[in-house]
């Protein structure tokens, strides 16, 4: 699904991504962890070109996203993204938030879009909020709207950029539940998170990043029990 080859990215002098290579297969759930500033979000944002990389190659579903000939908007239609700060559209109702890209990008009729949106709102458990504006919703509810909005495009891949980091503790569960259900349905997911419980339960592979590079990657069992790298051990000791 996603092929990342020898990717470098600089922010001025800072090396944000340092020779990163990674393959993600259909249906796979990848969790990326690491200290802040380690490049995990940058890597995730490079996959749908919210960040442009300075060297290397990224292909998504066969499309080389660095090729100027590639229509990035077409590629992005197939990649759902969920942000730390939700980024729901405050001037639109919950239903219209989810309808917007369906009608504008996918060219679905208003009726068809609303049917899909309603279905998704039931799935994420906030159908009763359809006609509310996001300002009246809790953080957890807004994030579920954001997830539904991304799913409405029927993406082949979902990117989650610390989806629970801006939430009050009591709301983290409701968002993680939605994500766990999504994983069970077989969605290909790349998740940047600090939720180790989620990583253990859902991930097929855990990627540990530090200083812009992938330090270690392994299945959750091996990763948490027998990390091979010193830096991984140090990090796990700090957070567990």
């Amino acid at each position: 699904m996603v092929k990342i080859r020898n990717v470098y990215k600089y922010f001025g002098q800072l090396k944000a991504l340092d020779n990163v290579s990674l393959d993600i297969y259909d249906g796979e759930k990848i969790v990326i962890i690491g200290p802040s500033g380690s490049g995990k979000s940058t890597l995730l944002r490079s996959i749908n070109k919210l960040e442009t990389i300075d060297a290397g190659q990224i292909t998504v579903d066969g499309f080389d996203i660095c090729d100027p000939e590639t229509n990035i908007n077409k590629v992005r239609e197939e990649i759902g993204m969920v942000f730390q700060s939700f980024n729901v559209f405050p001037h639109k109702t919950v239903l219209d938030n989810i309808n917007l890209a369906q009608t504008v990008v996918r060219k679905r009729s208003k009726k068809e879009a609303s049917e899909i949106s309603t279905e998704l709102l039931k799935k994420v458990g906030i159908i009763e909020k359809s006609d509310e504006y996001p300002g009246k919703l809790s953080g957890g509810q807004q994030q579920r709207v954001a997830i539904a909005r991304a799913l409405a495009m029927k993406p082949k891949l979902m990117l989650f950029d610390e989806p629970t980091s801006a939430l009050d503790p009591e709301m983290i569960g409701e968002v993680l539940d939605v994500m766990i259900n999504l994983a069970k349905e077989g969605m290909t997911m790349i998740v940047v998170t600090h939720e180790m419980g989620f990583a253990r339960e859902v991930a097929d592979r855990i990627i540990f990043m530090d200083y812009g590079a992938i330090v270690e990657e392994d299945t959750p069992e091996h990763f948490f029990k027998n990390p091979t790298q010193e830096r991984t051990k140090l990090f796990l000791n700090q957070i567990l």
Binding site: N48, N73, R76, M81, V105, A150, M153
Partner: peptide, 9 residues
């Protein structure tokens, strides 16, 4: 970013 990530121009 949210709008662009949904595929909007």
């Amino acid at each position: 970013e949210a709008a662009r990530s949904l595929g909007m121009t």
